[in-house]
C-alpha cells in the first residue's frame, strides 16, 4: 500500500499571455479517487499539464507521489497514466496495437506490452474489439481505449480528463463504474470534470477550482455532511420566523411558500424547531434537502 500524498502543491501559479490559468494554488491531496472539479477554464487541464511536466509553473512547486515535478519530470511521468479529454488515438490502428505501443513507450518490453494491452482491454471491456481499427469505434469504445492506454504501464496515478464527455447515460455509467473500480486496485485517480454528479458518485475526495483558484478541498463525505437546507412550511405567516432565525444567526430565505434555512448540523435543526414553537406557528412540514456538490460549489465559489 502506497503512502504519502498523491499531489502536493505550494503557491503554484501559471500565467499565459493575458490569462492567469492557476493562481497561488496550495493544496495536498491524499491517495484514492479524487475529483478535480471546476467549470471550463477553471485550470483543471493546466494543472494536469503541470503535473505531467508538460508545462512549467511560473511560481511554486508541485509534487506527484513524492516526486518534485520540476526536478524530475520524466520520473513523475513514469508514475502517471494520462487520459486526455480530446481525441488522441491513431484511427488507422487497432486498439491492441495502440495500447501495446503506448506500453512500449512507457518502458515495457514489446512482449510484456502486448500482454498488458490485452489485459487492459479485457479490463475496460474491449476484449472482442481489440483487433478492429479505432476509427470504427464508438465514442464510448474510444474512451475505453484511452483509459486502457493510461493503465497499460501500471501507474500509481491516472489522470482522467473528462472521461465521461460525449458518452450516453449507459456509457457514462459504465465508465464511472470502471473509474470507481480503479480505486480498489490501489491505483489513485485524479478525475477532472465539470460534472459534479460524477464526482459525487465515485470520488472519495474533492478539489474544487474556480478561475484558477482553489475553492475548497476535502473528503466528499465531509463536504456533504453537516450542511444542507431545511425546508420549513409554517403556512403564510413566515415573516416572524425569518426575523427570529436571523436574530439567531441562521441564514434563512423565503422560497416557493417555504422558509429555507441553511443548516450546518443537527443543532441547527433543533434551533429552527424551537423557533417555530416559540412563535406558536403551525408546523405543517419540516424536511431536509440533501446537499449536493453543486450546492457546495455554488456556495463556496460564489458566496452571496
Amino acid at each position: 500500500m502506497l503512502t504519502g500524498p498523491l499531489l502536493r502543491t505550494a503557491g503554484v501559479t501559471k500565467n499565459y499571455p493575458g490569462v492567469v490559468a492557476v493562481e497561488d494554488l496550495t493544496l495536498e491531496v491524499p491517495r484514492g479517487v479524487v475529483g478535480l472539479v471546476g467549470a471550463n477554464g477553471a485550470g483543471k487541464t493546466t494543472l494536469f499539464r503541470m503535473m505531467l511536466g508538460l508545462s512549467r509553473p511560473n511560481q511554486g512547486t508541485l509534487e506527484i507521489c513524492g516526486i518534485d515535478v520540476a526536478a524530475d519530470p520524466v520520473g513523475a511521468r513514469g508514475r502517471i497514466g494520462y487520459m486526455p479529454e480530446h481525441d488522441c488515438l491513431p484511427l488507422d490502428q487497432s486498439a491492441a496495437d495502440i495500447v501495446a505501443s503506448f506500453g512500449e513507450l512507457s518502458g515495457l518490453r514489446p512482449r510484456a506490452a502486448r500482454q498488458r494491452a490485452s489485459d487492459m482491454l479485457d479490463l475496460v471491456g474491449l476484449d472482442e474489439a481489440r483487433f478492429r481499427p479505432v476509427g470504427g469505434f464508438s465514442t464510448g469504445m474510444r474512451q475505453r481505449t484511452k483509459l486502457a492506454q493510461a493503465l497499460v504501464a501500471d501507474p500509481e496515478l491516472v489522470l482522467l480528463d473528462e472521461p465521461t464527455a460525449g458518452l450516453d447515460p449507459s456509457g457514462r455509467d459504465e465508465m464511472l463504474t470502471l473509474v470507481a473500480r480503479l480505486g480498489t486496485f490501489d491505483i489513485s485517480v485524479l478525475l477532472a470534470t465539470h460534472l459534479l454528479d460524477d464526482v459525487q458518485r465515485v470520488c472519495d475526495h474533492v478539489v474544487m477550482l474556480d478561475g484558477g483558484h482553489l475553492v475548497i478541498a476535502g473528503s466528499t463525505e465531509s463536504l456533504l455532511e453537516g450542511s444542507g437546507r431545511l425546508a420549513v412550511d409554517v403556512g403564510t405567516d413566515r415573516a416572524p420566523l425569518l426575523a427570529l432565525l436571523a436574530q439567531r444567526a441562521l441564514v434563512a430565505i423565503e422560497s416557493a411558500g417555504l422558509v429555507e434555512v441553511q443548516i450546518e448540523g443537527d443543532a441547527d435543526v433543533d434551533a429552527v424547531r424551537d423557533a417555530v414553537a416559540e412563535l406558536g406557528l403551525p408546523l405543517h412540514r419540516m424536511s431536509t434537502r440533501l446537499t449536493s456538490l453543486d450546492d457546495v460549489f455554488l456556495a463556496e465559489a460564489r458566496p452571496t
Partner: peptide, 24 residues
C-alpha cells in the same frame, strides 16, 4: 472477472521509450 493484475516486470526509462519510438 480477471480484475486487475499489477505489473511487476522490468520497466525501462528514457532510453527504452526512445527505442520504442524508433521501432514504432
Amino acid at each position: 472477472d480477471r480484475g486487475y493484475r499489477p505489473y511487476d516486470g522490468a520497466v525501462g526509462g528514457r532510453f527504452s521509450a526512445q527505442s520504442a519510438l524508433f521501432r514504432l
